[in-house]
Design a protein around this nucleic acid. Structure first.
Lengths: 334, 334
DNA sequence: CTGAAAGCGCTTACAG
DNA sequence: CTGAAAGCGCTTACAG
């Protein structure tokens, strides 16, 4: 429960005052090199580590960042957190995770993140309504907690964010298929209207309409087994020669059903997807997909947040970051 | 940075002292119902939420739990954290995540978790050497921080843990295949010797030897693309009629290569696996596997930890919990 | 460059 | 049942 040795012990053992010990840790340049050495030596000997809670109270900085997520078991969420943590480690920030499964919890969870005194927030939850999202922004602003939207689209020019251009990504992917001569291209999206998926849909629609083709969005649940049922109903002799799924799991599920029905992939139906997870590579055939740098999104967001938190300079530069994406062609398309 | 309203404000507005406000929050039974009501009302009106950092300092309890992991992007790790969080939410514990990628970091990270004053620790890192693991246990014990090993095997009868009986699970799976008449059954394991995989190997070996069959353990990297290369080399006309993989990704990768080489699954080679992730269901054919209740392991571990942390009763009961597993037969075996 | 003192926002014996 | 006071372990003006 307690790291026994405190700053008092270091002070006593070194013959200096609390203030000096604190200074060698927090403002080493303000202390004479000789005494700095001595103090450091005593700290080392005693194995002293400042109690972060006490430090947090006194300095009003907890060096802790809150991450607000929907569901940690989503591969992209976990991957983003991986990117976040690798950066937060180098900056010596701790990470605290808050999940919001249901909009009912918004108020409560937000009170919590405020009460926890986090220095900043990374907002990764893309499953909430716009109203709920705005409410969260409001709380954060009122509490003066810097935050960045991480892989969550937010129009507001003033809210820091990092994402990729999903609209363009979808557009590019659709164009690629159109250029291969595909005409009946479906978009397989989710029933729930995640902000990123809305952007993907728009990009797809733009590309289709631009070529005089009819956009067809098919919505399915995120749950794997339900997908299959949906997809089976789907194959009632509709003309289709390509499909773009917003997620790997949807793409693979679709592909399996199609192949089960006797279609050949990619000859009869080309299949493409977003993200580049292990599903894409473990699928047979391997999936053509848009490579979304999920890890980087997390890492870049965390780095941006550190700038926002150390508001020494008002000029943190651009706070609306778009990371590049690219298309990886594999065997599920020609 | 700050939730403006403090306990002083509540005291002033309600006409009671700090002590009373604090009591209605922490020991409501010690305060007269009438005043409790009044205070609660003021708290509500002012939207007061106690500063958790200050509370942590004063009470020496942070109501936060540290989770020590290797790699959050591993599906089972993320899933366990999901289970942990759902429980910690109901107990109003916060979660702080610490990762240890490399043994070099052990000392530093552990100093950190101690400095952060977490009330308890969930240890999920199964990638560390025994020596490093013992060192971690030592630090935790010295700092008097209760901890539970979560899906990490530890022989020590005194360390609380929750896991499944991997040895028996592997034994059962192997027996199942043997009973189906398989004779050349391989175990596809990892190069790195995770504690859980060592147990799986032992169970497999036991079952094979018991039936007079020769155990054959094939080790591969965890990295998907390398698996494939390894597996391709692997198929140099070895007699094989079944394989059990310690992970879904290994199983799927193996299956794909086998099918690519003209083998029929399950007719020529039956394939079984551990875990029951979405990979298992998205594979073609679908994977027979051991269903490991990963989410539950996390949830149960967290629940056990809460008991350990509230040491009112010395009798927390059994602290070595083994959760049940079961085999799910699908189309990758007959 | 260093120290004494106040303060961060709570909790918890100790009195009454 | 309630309040005054000390204390949790730090940091940071303020003096010197």
């Amino acid at each position: 429960m307690s790291s026994n040795v405190t700053i008092y012990d270091v002070a006593a053992a070194s013959g200096y005052s609390l203030a000096t010990i604190s200074r060698v840790l927090n403002h080493p340049e303000k202390v004479k090199p000789a005494t700095r050495e001595k103090v450091l030596k005593v700290i080392e000997e005693l194995g002293y580590r400042p109690n972060m809670v006490a430090r947090g109270l006194a300095s009003r900085k907890t060096t802790t960042v809150g991450i607000i997520i929907s569901d940690i078991t989503r591969a992209s969420v976990a991957e983003m957190i991986g990117g976040i943590m690798d950066i937060s480690d180098t900056y010596d920030y701790s990470i605290k995770i808050f999940q919001i499964h249901d909009e009912i919890q918004v108020k409560d969870v937000m009170r919590n993140v405020v009460a926890e005194q986090v220095d900043g927030v990374l907002y990764l939850n893309d499953e909430l309504s716009e109203a709920a999202t705005e409410e969260i922004k409001e709380v954060l602003k009122q509490s003066n907690i810097p935050f960045v939207f991480t892989n969550v689209i937010n129009e507001d020019k003033n809210t820091a964010s990092v994402a990729i251009d999903y609209l363009k990504a979808a557009y590019d992917m659709t164009r690629t298929l159109i250029n291969q001569g595909k005409k009946h291209i479906y978009l397989l999206s989710t029933a729930r209207r995640y902000t990123v998926n809305i952007a993907k849909e728009q990009g797809y629609i733009n590309a289709m309409q631009e070529s005089g083709l009819e956009p067809m969005v098919f919505r399915t649940s995120g749950e794997t087994s339900i997908n299959e049922v949906h997809f089976k109903e789907f194959f009632q002799n509709k003309p289709i020669d390509a499909a773009i799924a917003v997620r790997n799991s949807i793409a693979v599920s679709f592909m399996n059903v199609a192949i089960g029905k006797g279609y050949k992939v990619p000859e009869d139906i080309a299949v493409a997807s977003f993200q580049n997870t292990r599903y894409a590579v473990l699928a047979r055939p391997k999936l053509t997909c848009i490579d979304i740098p999920v890890y980087d999104i997390g890492a870049v967001a965390m780095r941006l947040l550190t700038k926002l938190m150390s508001k020494k300079t008002k000029d943190v530069g651009n706070t609306k970051i778009i990371l590049p994406h690219n298309i990886i062609i594999r065997n599920s398309t020609n």
